[in-house]
Design a protein around this nucleic acid. Structure first.
Lengths: 250, 250
DNA sequence: GCGCGTCGTTGATCCACATCAAAAGCAAGG
DNA sequence: CCTTGCTTTTGATGTGGATCAACGACGCGC
């Protein structure tokens, strides 16, 4: 859901970031330009690093559950996280996918409004909420940054409401693929072919569709030559213009 | 969309507030406890009042359009506003209804991400964006308040995504009526019968349904004795428990 | 009080997507 | 290499809500 408009970052953190994280984590951080740390100078970064710890999740591991006490906020440094809400009978709405650089954990009150779970193996920076609040008193830049992030997320949420309420399955899938491409590009990755790490079920739960409809729609776009399904969860956006047109609802 | 958790306000501003607004507007403001002004003392309120002007809209009047330069932010002091996004072919998604006390105008960049229009006659406080930003530098409490508002809106947006993506027409209507009741109560109004000032078309565009389905679902709930349709856009929530159960998705 | 335009309701039919069912990849481990 | 279990795809059928159409009700201006 986070939509950032910052300078691109050249590369994702290499796997070795994991070991570095205890000594001088932020200096090596490849997504700093997109996070809450972006506006801070070296001395200020040291302050935020002092309250930070790192978390590693394997694919499928939960980070927290809806309704749980919201003790921490997070920044994703690598991997993909999904956030979702459930109805009592098990119906699920994925409200967002988060990638490297995305922020996670703004809570209405003291409890999380959604659950979060790793889609792929993930690394995150964890900040205890109360310590970050203390730090915000001294560094209002952080609060400004958070407000900017929240505003972006709000705009993205409204776009998603338009998608869920008024777009067809075909338009939803086209919009989804373009969103992935746009966000990959923002992270400095190739935007074509695009990586689609999440399952058909997750995509369906994000778009308000069933896995079958997601699969059929992919097949249909493939047969029209608009996309190509590649191995390793990659999708080639062969005719991006056609996708734009479909996604826009023309 | 805004979901506040503040003390109730005793009453809506009476119609005379309109005349008062030029002399000492904020002193008479009946929704101050819910707005961005809430955390400010008298001296600080004077500062924010100095950059504020008031706006009056008649029913149906536009406030601003999606894509327009986002020069101002607003607080609703009376009436109902709807905010919405359009697809090129005219399909519409209402992303929120705003009532007295609600804040409006956070923008991702420098343009509004949605259009806003009065549903009923409205009064609003208008703040030029850049002046408010200046003031925020000196009064960080305002920025904190905005972040709190944005967090609440984000949680509400996610709840709405769950509704749009995964709830049935019946569950959507039940959720909608309960949301109106809850927000009326927050404003210190009776929560039953609840006032439903917007048209069936607006409700449909908010819930991802057609007017016909909205109408049929109201009729169905009425025939089951769960609600009663009263004159003057009022709905009596006769069996609130049943509504809660339906809305929750059990 | 009457005509008129808008909004809401109701009915008949249709269709996009869901549901139910099963086959076809595909990755991991023995 | 084959088994095991999951994910994805494909097929057949069902259905909730959309669409198309008409009528009724309400508010407003004259």
């Amino acid at each position: 859901m986070a939509v950032f408009d910052f300078d691109r970052v050249s590369k994702l953190a290499p796997a070795v970031a994991r070991e570095r994280s205890d000594s001088s984590p932020c200096a090596a951080c490849s997504v700093r330009g997109m996070t809450i740390c972006a506006p801070l100078d070296a001395q200020e970064q040291a302050q935020i690093a002092a309250i930070m710890s790192s978390v590693e999740l394997e694919a499928g591991a939960p980070l927290f559950d809806e309704g749980e006490a919201a003790g921490n906020v997070y920044n994703v440094t690598s991997g993909t996280i999904k956030v979702y809400k459930l109805l009592p009978d098990g119906r699920r709405q994925v409200t967002g996918f988060l990638f490297a650089g995305d922020f996670l954990g703004l809570a209405k009150q003291d409890t999380y409004a959604f659950s979060a779970e790793a889609v792929t193996p993930c690394l995150l920076c964890r900040f205890p909420r109360h310590k970050l609040e203390d730090l915000m008193q001294r560094l209002p830049k952080i609060e400004q940054r958070l407000l900017g992030i929240a505003s972006n997320e709000l705009a993205a949420a409204q776009e998603q409401m338009l998608l869920l309420g008024r777009k067809t399955a075909r338009e939803k899938i086209a919009s989804f693929l373009l969103m992935l491409a746009k966000r990959a590009k923002q992270r400095g990755l190739a935007d074509n072919p695009v990586s689609v790490p999440m399952s058909r079920t997750d995509i369906g739960d994000y778009l308000g569709l069933t896995t079958e409809t997601v699969s059929r729609t992919f097949t249909q776009l493939k047969q029209e030559g608009i996309i190509q399904l590649l191995p390793n969860h990659q999708v080639d956006l062969a005719d991006k213009e056609a996708l734009e047109e479909i996604a826009g609802g023309f």
